[in-house]
Design a protein around this nucleic acid. Sequence first.
DNA 1: GCTTTCATTTTGTCCTGGACAAAATTTGTA
DNA 2: TACAAATTTTGTCCAGGACAAAATGAAAGC
Lengths: 305, 305
Amino acid sequence: MKNLANHPDGFGIAAVERDTGLPKDTLRVWERRYGFPQPLRDANGERVYPAAQVDKLRLIRRLLDQGLRPSRIVAASTDELAQLLEASPEAAPPAAPAGWNTLLAFMQRQDGAALQRALQQSLLKQGLQRFLTDTLTPLTDAVGQAWLRGELNVAGEHLYTEQVHNVLRGAIANHGGHGGAPSILLTTFPNELHSLGLLMAEAMFAPEGAHCTSLGTQTPLADIEHAATQGGIDVVALSFSAAYPPRQAVEGLNTLRARLPASIALWAGGLAVREQQRKLPGIRVIADLHDGIAALAEWRAAHPA
Amino acid sequence: MKNLANHPDGFGIAAVERDTGLPKDTLRVWERRYGFPQPLRDANGERVYPAAQVDKLRLIRRLLDQGLRPSRIVAASTDELAQLLEASPEAAPPAAPAGWNTLLAFMQRQDGAALQRALQQSLLKQGLQRFLTDTLTPLTDAVGQAWLRGELNVAGEHLYTEQVHNVLRGAIANHGGHGGAPSILLTTFPNELHSLGLLMAEAMFAPEGAHCTSLGTQTPLADIEHAATQGGIDVVALSFSAAYPPRQAVEGLNTLRARLPASIALWAGGLAVREQQRKLPGIRVIADLHDGIAALAEWRAAHPA
DNA sequence: GCTTTCATTTTGTCCTGGACAAAATTTGTA
DNA sequence: TACAAATTTTGTCCAGGACAAAATGAAAGC
């Protein structure tokens, strides 16, 4: 029972794990292999990480999520890291609609009410589906970019996610077309906690008259199977964010495909599976929200009432 | 990169940590000291926990949370544990409202629409705050219990969480009293992904005229600090589920208290901190939803407009 | 009686350094 | 160009030792 001591001006390894998401084992092995981080030690020989090193670890984590490899970046200097971050891909922000800077400003100063009002206005003006494809998709992208560049902190991003949730759930409730076909079960695999894609899919399908049941994120495979066969489900739809390991996605999807009866369709959407169609026989890969509508039309053509 | 593989009919130590909330180190040291759990080993000598042992660990976790000591229970037989659980408090399910069995049945057969309708009806009949205290709190407890006893699978629990989210977000949007005082920032620490408590707190505060800003779950400490000082926040409110390690909660809260200006109040609610008031100087521990209202009243008494 | 102080046991977390399989990358081949 | 095999990188796991914080029990003071 070590941990409670407030190391003055430093963090214990558990605190760093909590803050950066990097497991203790990984922190120790990096220290051994790359010489960073190099924490101080307290009287008892335990690691004490100065705030500066924790900040750098957070930066490293961002770059890792972008696909860079630890050997390239863990030992690099802070300046080099900043450069890499600048030079990151996706340099083409797709035709930023007017007013985006305003929205980003709301996030920066934590003004949730104003942000929600603005989103709600867009929704009313465009209608749900165009709001999704023309506003939310590129805006979410832009928010991710801004966070990556350090222009937006985590709190701002969380605020955005939260308000999008509010707006979309409200919109879905209004469109509540219960009883239609097909009956779609939406969820994600364990370790995938990005719920926005899921919600956007639901918001796309619901107004088309499909009967959506969302289980939220992180449903174990066995439970997806059980829920689908129990609940009279026609389609199981899974969402994968860009951060999800593609191989895990492919493996899990094929396993699930084998366990589900052939009468239940399996759809997979999101960046992690976009290019994987040929490794996913019997599974409908959904390229984007428009393609989701197409998949729905296909299903209905194949299953006349 | 071990862990991701599907051990047929067993769980790796990381999966058990995720499932039970017991850290890897603790699992290993229990095995050494008490002889339980006693996982099998795979070809590589790594622990593989059979499902039965994981279930028992969950039971043990539950009893630990009630104050029993590991030496008494870790080595005990499953029957003894079941007895202890029966004999424990909470033996009095507070006057189970009629119709609960119906609700559980909806969850068991994945009927989200019916579940949502029933919840909505309760909400209309009782009003938001009584719905929270008299229905949702005990019902959530009952759902947890049912899951613990294996009467409800993960999918059913997810479905419940999802529908409660829908109902509460809708209700909060209706009560939307923007602009009131105090301005409350709601979130959780990293590793705490239980969002229900957070949402329930928001639903309790919002109709009282407070200005709530929720950041969702898992906001790093530094970002909470930043958001609070940036956004003109009066109160930072953190939520902790029963599963959150109390030590981590106490440590994080005290650190945050030290970093926040004294003018910003810090509130902590949830089972993990309920008994920790004396370790949390300068922090208002909120025992339950009623006490939240009390805390709000206190704050207003101390800060006359 | 009750609370406070001190000694003892219990318990969770951290340590080192080694090992290895899964993932990513590079190289070789049809 | 696409696929298969060899290689490197990387995260996670293991053992068993250590120790401080927490919980418990005993002793002493009011």
